[in-house]
């Protein structure tokens, strides 16, 4: 009996366990990846079906990618995508860690659970409903902000859905509101995992709370921060479509500050019905994300092998 065969026999049950999951990933994720060639083709629909579309259509090189780079919008949507996602990564991480530290300070366990529940609440609902919520707040003629909040300060109503300048803040707040609970609990989990002896020793040494946070908590949850950040960087060219599409209600005047690659591509698909263009955009996003992850992972692994993703 050869070694390999022996191994296979020894581990056949484990391979059997892997089978459904791997089969699924092949069908759901790897098979459609063949479709990336659509991005380089001029789709001819007279041959239908996935393979027909791919096989019979003509190669047109990078023509489908042109609209992503040639127009003035390209710069705007790329800038918006990067700035928003960069901002989200920074803000979500810092606020979530801060909040997690706060929650960790709460000594009453019941109260802590209660806060956690409420903070996680927005994470549980779909963006469709978030769109409803924001509209009820910002609606021009009957929204809560214009009807109740602004008059209290004697400020005139604001046409929220036509003033682009407010939206970077609005979207950032909405994103923070929606996702903070999730990130917070991930970091809280890491903090709870830290051995109490560190803090006890530090307290004996007379370290202040702030010093403890800086020299114990943060370094010890650094691996989690790295992993979460790396994953986020991999998706920095994608944006939360629901957030950028549902929440600004696809309002035209807001586009200079709310349009991101995903919404631009989606609108292109709606007006032109061109799958070549949207495939090209998808490919571009995936490729850039992939490269960014490889690069940042490389940098991380140079500094600390254990924190790297792979």
């Amino acid at each position: 009996m050869s070694d390999a065969f022996k191994k296979l026999k020894r581990y056949r049950a484990l391979f059997l366990m892997i089978l459904p999951g791997m089969a699924y990933l092949i069908v759901n994720n790897y098979l459609p990846m063949l479709g990336v060639v659509i991005a380089f083709k001029d789709i001819d629909y007279s041959h239908r079906g996935l393979f027909g579309l791919i096989y019979y259509s003509d190669w047109i090189g990078l023509k489908n990618f042109e609209y992503l780079f040639k127009t003035n919008d390209a710069l705007v949507i790329t800038r918006n995508t990067l700035l928003y996602n960069g901002g989200f990564i920074l803000l979500n991480t810092t606020v979530a860690i801060g909040l997690a530290i706060l929650l960790n300070e709460v000594r009453n366990r019941l109260a802590s659970r209660f806060y956690q529940s409420l903070i996680l609440l927005p994470y549980l609902i779909s963006m469709v409903i978030v769109g409803y919520l924001v509209l009820s707040l910002l609606n021009v003629e009957n929204g809560f902000v214009n009807k109740v909040v602004l008059p209290m300060f004697g400020v005139d109503p604001i046409s929220w859905y036509s003033e682009a300048k407010y939206w970077p803040y609005i979207l950032t707040i909405v994103n923070l509101w929606k996702n903070i609970g999730y990130f917070c609990i991930i970091y809280l989990a890491s903090i709870i995992g830290i051995d109490h002896e560190y803090y006890e020793a530090a307290t004996i040494d007379g370290a202040s709370k702030w010093q403890q946070i800086r020299s114990i908590t943060i370094p010890l949850i650094a691996p989690t921060i790295t992993v979460m950040t790396l994953l986020a960087i991999g998706r920095i060219f994608y944006s939360d479509f629901g957030l950028f599409y549902q929440v600004p209600l696809n309002s035209g005047p807001l586009q200079p500050t709310t349009d991101v690659i995903d919404t631009y591509v989606y609108r292109g698909l709606m007006t032109l019905g061109d799958i070549g263009m949207s495939s090209a955009a998808g490919f571009y996003q995936a490729l850039v994300g992939f490269i960014l992850v490889l690069v940042s992972n490389y940098i991380v692994s140079r500094r600390d092998r254990d924190s790297a993703l792979f």
Binding site: Y67, T71, G252, P253, P256, D259, T271, D274
Partner: peptide
């Protein structure tokens, strides 16, 4: 619109921004 789809996508964006105002 196919032969000028890049331009149409960009111009539609401009329309959305200004027209209704």
């Amino acid at each position: 619109a196919n032969p000028v789809k890049t331009e149409v996508a960009a111009a539609t964006n401009v329309l959305n921004q200004y027209r209704i105002g």
